[in-house]
Design a protein around this nucleic acid. Structure first.
Lengths: 174, 174
DNA sequence: TTTTAATGTAATGGG
DNA sequence: CCCATTACATTAAT
């Protein structure tokens, strides 16, 4: 449940613990048995969000507040239709298949940074805990730590580099 | 001899047959004697290369052809200094002891992919042949096929997941 | 422009 | 060999 984009209904497959005996899954004969391919988790849930309702029947696009929007008619019934409004940028991300960029809040960053100072390699347990506390996907946490480690290494490299360079320069000036 | 990262001047240690009595190696007292453990093949040749000449005395960095380079001063005498030019990318990998990431060329990938389509599990003989033809280590080939098989498996899982989910969605909309 | 979230994949280590 | 992870090079969003 990352902020900035909704998850649609794609999460329903994973809520094994909460469905009743008369759940949709059981009616459709898709009961999870923790065997075979149904256990698989989609790698691209933000794409599923649009696929869940099929290809749009139609769409119109327009400008609003200086931004390009598109209204897609996902389903047309006699008395109603289901529409979805998406921004142009998001649409671009979609067909490129790229996850919309997550914008962490300041408070989320603060927590992540404080954990990072203690442990740059949190295990799955810590990541799940963080994910729950910060209301983020565990995947986002993992990626954040990866990028954070890369950043740390970059800064180490730069400072080390400058140190050597300064030594060299000092020697030259002696 | 993987393409994708230059060897700088560090390859000189391997050209034992071509150096004269007044080579840099002999001046520095680093003559190879081919005795004892030196005959063994290192598991990490990309680390040995830098350790052989000790830590650089100093280094300066600069840009050339859009790439970061570093010039390291290996030894400073009164009238001369011995320097070594290395690319920045290589420098990064050094201090961590990790093999520099191989960047396969498009044509190498094409060959590997075409072989993969026919046989995902090439034996040592095929791998050696590929290594020779593509000018790569046999190890790189082996790793490539391992990663390629993992990728194939992922895509299979993903498509199966989507198939099941689409069935699920179709049922809902009927 | 700079920073950094996201991606693809080469490399590593354990089983 | 597999599998899960990690590092790393790049791309692209902000």
């Amino acid at each position: 449940s990352s902020p900035g984009w909704d998850e649609g209904t794609s999460g329903s497959m994973e809520n094994k613990a909460t469905h009743s005996s008369f759940s949709i899954e059981s009616i459709l004969g898709l009961e999870q048995k923790d065997e075979g391919i149904l256990a698989a988790k989609s790698q691209r849930p933000w794409i599923d969000t649009c696929n869940n309702l099929g290809k749009p029947v139609a769409s119109i696009s327009y400008l609003q507040h200086g931004q390009m929007y598109e209204e897609r008619v996902l389903k047309c019934e006699k008395y109603f239709s289901i529409t979805e409004k998406v921004s142009y940028k998001r649409e671009l991300s979609w067909y490129r298949g790229r996850r919309p960029r997550t914008a962490f809040t300041r408070s989320q960053i603060e927590v992540l940074e404080s954990v990072f100072r203690v442990n740059s390699y949190p295990g799955i347990d810590v990541r799940e805990e963080l994910a729950h506390k910060l209301d983020l996907d565990e995947d986002r946490i993992q990626i954040w730590f990866q990028n954070r480690r890369a950043k740390l290494k970059r800064s180490h490299r730069e400072s080390q580099f400058l140190m050597v360079k300064n030594t060299f320069t000092s020697n030259l000036l002696e």
